[in-house]
Every structure is written in C-alpha cells, then in structure tokens.
C-alpha cells in the first residue's frame, strides 16, 4: 500500500506539491488526471526518488515504511517502478545487458540469488513476446534509435521483468498510436494482481478505456482536488479541467 501524506515539495523555490495526500491500496489501479503543469510528473519523480526536489513536509509510506530517506535504487529494490514519459537512451549498452544488470542489482539488494543466464533469457524472451518486441531489439543499445512506441513497450517490458509492487505510469499513452496503445495496455493489464498497485498518470481519458482504474484523482495546484470512481474520468473528458483551473484563480 502506498500512502502519501501532506506532501509539500519545491524546486528552485517554486512550490510544486502543496500538501498532497493520496492512498493507493494493494491491487488498486488509481488514475491521476490533471491539466499541464499541475505537478503530476513531479509527483511521480518524487515517489521514485529523483533528487532535484526539496521536500519540505509530509511523508511517503510504502507498506508503512517511509521511503523518502531511501536512494532511488533502494526504492526500486523495494518495489517502486516508474515507467518514464521520456525513457532515456543509454548508448553502447545492449538492452539485454541493461535488463540483467538492473534485475540482478535489485535481487542482490533484496538478498535474493541472481538469475542464471538461461533463466534470465527465458524471462526476458517470454515478456518480450507478449509485448511484440522482436529479439533483435534486445540486442540494440537501450532506447537508442527506438521509436516512441518502442520505448514505451520497453518500459513495460522492464516492468514485467522487475515485478514491482508499485507501478507508476507517467503519460505512458503519449506518442502511442492506437495499436501500440493496445499492446502496451494489454501488457499492463496482464500484470495486474492483488499484490500490485498501479498509479496511472494521464491527461486523457483515452488510456483509461484500456487500463480501467478503480479510482480517479484530479490533481491541480500541487494537490488532489477531487477523487472518485472511473466515471470521474468520463466527466473530465466531457467538461475539461476548467473547473479546477477556476478554483485556482479564486
């Protein structure tokens, strides 16, 4: 279970999160929607442990443990996964190499045995097949020269391989055509389980037709303005974010 309590964060003196609270239960898929600049991506970075932000108040608990003191790599080993909106390129590092280094680093951190090469190969190839990722892509340098859709599929492949308990998807639908959106969503849906939670960040309701949320939260001005069921997403799609922006002005 992820609990964010009264989180206040700034970057270079500018307040981005302003007393945000949010709970995502085990097995729950929560969606966060909101206008540009509402702090959605920042929230995902802060949960994952990016260091650029100053946390002024509040806490983030993963199964009761405050993760704010942990390094990004420790949070990853604890089960936090962020599917990036813009995945980074790592020139010269074969995707396979990267995946194995990441997986084994996490297993070591959890004091589990590392996978043997055949076990690892099988795990990757099974996951890749489901996401329609061709084998030769796994030999290429990670994300280098990948299309937008390929990069997003690679993020989901990593998620499938690393088996995190808290999956954050930051604008995973951006830059995807309809076929890629279907493949990626199916990949995500296949990972849903009682023990795994998802936090899906998106501008548009479209993605939520594929990855159906249990709860929807509207974020603006660095906090959650409203929460509801999946019908809230449809309402937003119809009315836009004008109401929430107006509140800001008031």
């Amino acid at each position: 279970m992820l609990e964010i309590k009264n989180l206040v964060a700034e970057i270079e003196g500018k307040r981005i999160l302003d007393g945000l609270s949010l709970t995502v239960h085990d097995g729950e898929t929560a969606a966060i929607m909101g206008p540009n600049g509402s702090g959605k991506s920042t929230l995902s970075y802060i949960i994952a442990g990016k260091e650029d932000y100053e946390i002024l108040d509040g806490e983030i608990l993963l199964d009761g443990e405050n993760i704010l003191e942990m390094e990004a790599s420790e949070r990853a080993a604890a089960g936090v996964f962020l599917a990036f909106q813009y995945p980074l390129e790592i020139p010269g590092v074969a995707t396979m190499t990267f995946l194995k280094a990441a997986l084994n680093a996490q297993r070591r951190a959890r004091e589990e045995t590392e996978l043997t090469t055949p076990e690892f190969m099988k795990a990757v190839q099974d996951a890749a097949a489901k996401l329609e990722i061709p084998r030769d892509m796994l030999k290429r340098a990670l994300n280098v020269g990948f299309s937008g859709g390929e990069k997003k599929r690679m993020e989901i492949l990593q998620m499938a391989l690393l088996q995190p308990r808290m999956c954050i998807l930051d604008e995973t639908d951006s830059g995807l055509d309809i076929d890629a959106l279907r493949i990626v969503s199916e990949g995500v849906n296949a990972l849903k389980s009682d023990k795994r939670s998802f936090l899906v960040i998106t501008h548009y309701q479209r993605l939520l037709n594929y990855i159906v949320p249990d709860t929807v939260h509207v974020m603006a001005n660095g906090k959650i303005m409203r929460s509801g069921g999946k019908e809230l997403a449809e309402e937003l799609e119809a009315n836009g974010y004008a109401d929430y922006k107006a509140q800001e002005a008031a």
Binding site: A48, A76, L88, I90, G92, A101, L103, Q106, Q158
Partner: peptide, 20 residues
C-alpha cells in the same frame, strides 16, 4: 536517475554508462 530507478546504485549506473 533512470538507471537508479531500475535498481542500480550510482556507482553501478556510472560504470554501466561508461562501459557503453
């Protein structure tokens, strides 16, 4: 940050990027 988010610590991430 991307590498660390995947579980590599800072030294490991740097070694990986440099090796590439």
């Amino acid at each position: 940050f991307y590498c660390m988010q995947r579980g590599l610590d800072e030294e490991e991430a740097t070694a990986l990027i440099v090796n590439g």
